[in-house]
């Protein structure tokens, strides 16, 4: 029963993400309107036939903006996690494999990064340098690699005394080869889970940043900045707040369900 439930939810998550990816890629053909087209006479229309999810203060179609926003959110999510996984894997592998003072220094650094509230770092760095989509990806990546580093380190610590690794050493394999060919491939399971959950986390971070005005800058639509623009009209135009939030919720939920599904699968093996 547990396996069935876990798998079913994971499948729902995967299908949702696939559909979302298709919509995001085909945005140009799927979106009913131009997401940037200002049309003041149609401002703040409630959902209707022409605008299925209503319009914003400038009369732009909310549905089209959400569809284009999906591109930005997914892009930021995947690239930020890519950066986080790369840094985390390198740091974790070095710390776990070499141990000693290198391990001590790297892990103190991990502890430090973990003790500074992430949102403080995100806001401060982006405010100092100036918001741009590239910077947002990089900074979210730079502030979320610590979990992966700990995971990889723990996996490598438990693997490096195993016989197949010792055998590789004895056969004269270089440290580089042992790490990349023997250790990391066997340590990637938990990292995959963490990365899947991480994409959801990165999308949440982007939405918070954009909501606070330090994320994706208008007129480029992102789920977070649509929420930010909707905040002012919260009393009169509820669709501006409800729709983007539901998009974020659904997407993050899908990533979380998929991640948990993979975790369950791995733990049964």
């Amino acid at each position: 029963m547990k396996a069935l439930l876990g798998n079913r939810l994971a499948v729902i998550g995967a299908l949702t993400l696939a559909a979302l990816a298709v919509v995001a890629i085909a945005a140009r053909w799927v979106a009913p309107h131009d997401p940037l087209q200002v049309n003041l006479p149609d401002a703040l229309l409630a959902p209707c036939r022409a605008y299925p999810l209503g319009t914003d203060q400038l009369g732009r179609d909310v549905l089209s903006r959400l569809i284009y926003g999906a591109r930005i959110s997914l892009l930021i999510g995947f690239i930020a996690v890519g950066i986080a996984v790369s840094i985390g894997t390198v740091v974790g592998a070095l710390a776990g494999f070499y141990g000693g003072w290198l391990d001590a220094i790297l892990m103190r650094f991990v502890d430090t990064m973990l003790s500074i509230p992430t949102i403080f770092l995100l806001l401060a760095i982006i405010a100092v340098i100036g918001p741009s989509i590239e910077l947002i990806m990089v900074v979210i990546g730079l502030t979320s690699w610590m979990g992966v580093a700990r995971l990889v380190r723990a996996e490598i610590l438990s693997l490096k005394e195993r016989e197949f690794v010792l055998a590789a050493h004895v056969l004269g394999a270089s440290s580089w080869r042992v790490i990349t060919k023997h250790l990391l491939p066997n340590a990637m399971g938990p990292v995959l889970v963490s990365a899947t959950l991480g994409v959801g986390g990165a999308i949440l971070s982007e939405s918070v940043l954009s909501y606070l005005g330090l994320g994706v800058q208008p007129p480029t639509p992102s789920w977070g900045n649509i929420l930010n623009e909707g905040r002012i009209a919260l009393g009169v135009a509820w669709w501006l707040t409800l729709a983007p939030g539901l998009c974020i919720l659904t997407t993050v939920l899908a990533f979380n369900l998929l991640g948990e599904g993979i975790r369950e699968r791995l733990s049964r093996q």
């Binding site: 909501y211 929420l227 919260l234 983007p244 939030g245 919720l249 979380n256």
Partner: peptide, 22 residues
């Protein structure tokens, strides 16, 4: 729990403001 974990808290805050407050 999964839904709660995935919902952006600031969005929930906005909805609560709109509903319970306004």
């Amino acid at each position: 729990v999964f839904i709660g974990y995935s919902a952006p808290s600031f969005w929930v805050a906005l909805l609560c403001m709109a509903w319970f407050g306004v």
